[in-house]
Design a protein around this nucleic acid. Structure first.
Length: 449
RNA sequence: CGGGCUAUAGCGCAGUCUGGUAGCGCGUUCGUCUGGGGGACGAGAGGCCGCAGGUUCGAAUCCUGCUAGCCCGACCA
């Protein structure tokens, strides 16, 4: 993309409404614009990041054997009355009345609707296990929205629902989700720690929240520092292996890690003192196993091999997609702006032409742009007439992980510069080598798609 | 929902106390110069001063009501 033809409304000054760093940077970098309290428009650059996150989630869910689908945002109140949640949910559920005076809701979650779909079409144990999911907008009429997209009223969320014949099968689904979520977050450049959680209004027996450590997090967390050394890395996961999924789950959940909701002082104090940590965290996902709570209420049963009827064991599993954009920024920024992890960056690399109108500089930038695009990369070329300093400041603010700087001074020696946004390390190399280097950086991710 | 605050140009703000032609910085448009970390000079454009009512010869400014947004708390993915 050429910056001169793009829509990137950056702000030099911080809008007064924004308090925390990710909200400020999202507004300043032109990612979002507030439409009303807790409701945001996603401008082109923010939308690109949202889509990147979404793509990673889809890839990892499909890899785990889960099926994408899509359910409506507006639902009839009837199903919610059937489950008992129409009254239980309270004022956070946005209630709407249509022209025929029917009660409708803007959905905050979809257990009822998916269970209704399930009971209409699945009648045999042979159709199990089944896990479906969607990535869809949700709405919770928060009393006090804040922190930008991290605690909005409208939010984009992946919500998955698993159906199994037995508790054991359902726990495998639980473990499978835990592992796939770990992979998902790692691909986004985030460390999200599974912590034992409280089930809240969704209900359930087993539940873990995934938390990203950040000073601005809403939850107080307590953990054994050894847990931060754990990574999945590139280990090969066989999602149909119950043993392997369970072992990974055990590895990642056996060390102490809890939010203040479930914190146990005695257990915490049993950790060697030098490894005890208290910090703050942002919740970016949660998995639940809740047994037959909804299948009983909504009568979702299958026929078993011996001919009897059995309520299915369910779980639901969520990732806060829009919230993740804020969480990633909270975990990846400096005083100049955002520092996107390669997996979610809106553009792979920035090209800065230091002297627009200079024949050699223009030609080199054009060639770089063509070659990078030819490698399947998505560069942002700053072809405007701004001063060098302004171009650098913009690139730093929007946080592209790599920048190629082209100017007459370097071109005299046949070189351009490749700079890492994160480390600030800058190397001089030929423009052909710069293209090759950037292509190499992104090659592993390209192959995963 | 309790407590506090704000609303004036695209953004950040002054002006309100003490009523009298709407201001500043940034951004933006045009021109010239400049050209490796938000550059300089010159000339412009851009406002129902949140909305409604009242007081007054006259209201951004005083009074009443409303709306929207923000902060702290409680609550929450």
């Amino acid at each position: 993309m050429r910056l001169s033809r793009y829509f990137l409304p950056i702000l030099k000054e911080t809008p007064a409404e924004a308090q925390i760093i990710s909200h400020r940077l999202m507004l300043r970098a032109g990612l979002i614009k507030q439409a009303s309290a807790g409701i945001y428009s996603w401008l082109p650059t923010g939308f690109k990041v949202l889509r990147k996150i979404e793509d990673i989630i889809h890839a990892e869910q499909i890899r785990a054997g889960h099926h994408p689908m899509l359910m409506p945002t507006i639902q009839s109140a009837d199903l919610w009355r059937e489950s008992g949640r129409y009254d239980a949910y309270g004022a956070e559920m946005l209630r709407i009345r249509d022209r025929h005076d029917r009660d409708m809701i803007y959905t905050p979650t979809a257990e009822e609707l998916i269970t209704d779909i399930f009971r209409s079409h699945v009648t045999s144990y042979r159709d199990l296990p089944l896990t479906v999911y969607q990535i869809q907008w949700k709405f919770r009429d928060e009393m006090r929205p804040r922190f930008g997209v991290m605690r909005g009223r409208e939010f984009y969320m992946k919500d998955g629902y698993s159906f199994d014949l037995t508790r054991e099968d359902a726990l495998h689904a639980y473990n499978r989700h835990l592992v796939s979520y770990l992979r998902t977050y790692e691909r986004m450049g985030l460390q999200a720690i599974p912590m034992r959680a409280d089930s809240g209004p969704i209900g359930g027996d087993d539940t873990h929240e995934f938390l990203v450590l950040a000073d601005t997090g809403e939850s107080e967390v307590f953990y054994d520092s050894a847990i931060t050394d754990l990574t999945l890395g590139d280990r090969d996961i066989n999602y149909s292996s119950t043993g392997q999924c369970r072992r990974v789950m055990e590895q990642f959940t056996s060390l102490y890690a809890r939010t203040d909701e479930t914190h146990d002082e005695a257990l915490f104090n049993a950790i060697p003192e030098e490894r005890r940590r208290t910090a703050r965290g942002i919740e970016v996902g949660q998995i639940f196993y809740f047994g037959t709570q909804y299948s009983d209420a909504l009568s979702a049963k299958v026929q078993t091999s011996d001919g009897s009827q059995a309520a299915v064991h369910m779980g639901s599993h969520g990732i806060g997609v829009s919230r993740l954009v804020g969480a990633i920024i909270e975990a990846n920024h400096d005083d100049k702006g955002i520092i996107w992890p390669e997996g979610v960056t809106p553009f792979h690399v920035g090209i800065v032409n230091l002297k627009q109108g200079n024949g050699a500089a223009d030609a080199t930038c054009e060639a770089l742009y063509r070659q990078l695009t030819g490698h399947g990369l998505d560069p942002l070329y700053d072809d405007t007439n701004e001063q060098a300093g302004a171009k650098f400041a913009t690139m730093d603010l929007i946080g592209l992980p790599w920048r190629i700087t082209v100017g007459p001074r370097g071109l005299k020696n046949g070189v351009v510069e490749l700079t890492s946004r994160r480390s600030g390390v800058c190397v001089e190399l030929t423009s052909a080598d710069a293209v090759a280097r950037v292509a190499e950086i992104y090659a592993p991710q390209g192959m995963e798609k």
